[in-house]
């Protein structure tokens, strides 16, 4: 497909800092290559803003390969844009028609305060991980491969949850700003494997309680998180974590 160029109108959330008031600014951008990624288009906008002596738009990014979880903002109401199973860095401008009006907003959640423009502070996810998203084992040398037999189906299913890159799109998409998909994916992949069993219930209770304490909402089963997730992680993990939570509390007495 041959390269062509399009024009887009961008309505971008601009906020100088966490405690500063924010507002939308509108920018017109012409000559955007349809081969460019969404972030390359923003790089182009920022170059334009810099040459005009204005502040560039702050947005997070790192690998630009769709695997690191750094990038992400809401485009016209959809976290990571209109396509399923992709991060915003893997979204390309050929997806949009010339003259498209795109509204860019940061993830909106009380637990994700805006740092600047489209960047939010996602350290709340680190706190959920620190509450129990690990196995407490003394590791010496690497153990022999296959010393613990794990069935291929269990390993594959665990990997489905482990594919979570912690981008926060699930929180952004949820009407309750719930972190249940992230938290349950991190609980779920360890719960699938023998190494995760000793701390299975304490982990589940600690991580879900931490998410609640941080101000994330509860699950209403709208399933928006699954649709927004760049790794298409299933809401079944939320249900499984829910089961382990109640079992941990009631049966295991945590």
């Amino acid at each position: 497909m041959s390269e062509s160029t399009i024009s887009v109108t961008l309505e971008v959330w601009r906020q100088p800092g966490t405690d500063a008031a924010g507002r939308f600014e509108t920018y017109q951008l012409d000559g955007v290559s349809t081969d460019s990624s969404f972030l390359e288009m923003l790089d182009m906008l920022n170059q334009k803003l810099l040459t005009e002596g204005k502040e560039p738009v702050a947005f997070e990014h790192d690998c630009r390969e769709g695997i690191c979880g750094s990038c992400g903002f809401v485009i016209n109401g959809n976290p990571h844009g209109p396509d399923r199973g992709t991060t915003v860095c893997q979204l390309h401008m050929r997806r949009f028609k010339s003259g498209a009006k795109l509204t860019l907003e940061p993830w909106r959640a009380k637990a994700f305060p805006v740092l600047r423009d489209l960047m939010v502070d996602r350290s709340a996810f680190d706190k959920i991980m620190a509450a129990g998203g690990y196995n407490s084992v003394n590791v010496g040398n690497a153990p022999d491969a296959n010393s613990i037999p794990i069935g291929q189906d269990a390993a594959s299913e665990a990997f489905d949850a482990a594919a979570c890159i912690g981008c926060g799109a699930c929180v952004a998409a949820c009407k309750n700003a719930s972190a249940n998909l992230f938290t349950s994916a991190k609980i779920g992949h360890l719960a699938m494997l023998p190494q995760g069993q000793p701390e299975r219930y304490t982990r589940t209770v600690a991580m879900l309680d931490m998410a609640e304490d941080l101000g994330f909402g509860a699950c209403s089963w709208t399933q928006e998180c699954e649709a927004a997730c760049p790794k298409e992680i299933s809401v079944k993990w939320i249900s499984r974590a829910q089961r382990d939570y109640v079992k941990g509390r009631v049966v295991k007495g945590i």
Partner: peptide
């Protein structure tokens, strides 16, 4: 009780784009 907490979880500034945007296949 849950709904009150869920409402607070979004934060003071909500989305400008409408809630009707979705990528669901359902």
């Amino acid at each position: 009780w849950l709904a009150r907490e869920n409402r607070k979880a979004r934060g003071a500034t909500g989305y400008k784009a409408p809630m009707t945007a979705t990528k669901q296949k359902r």
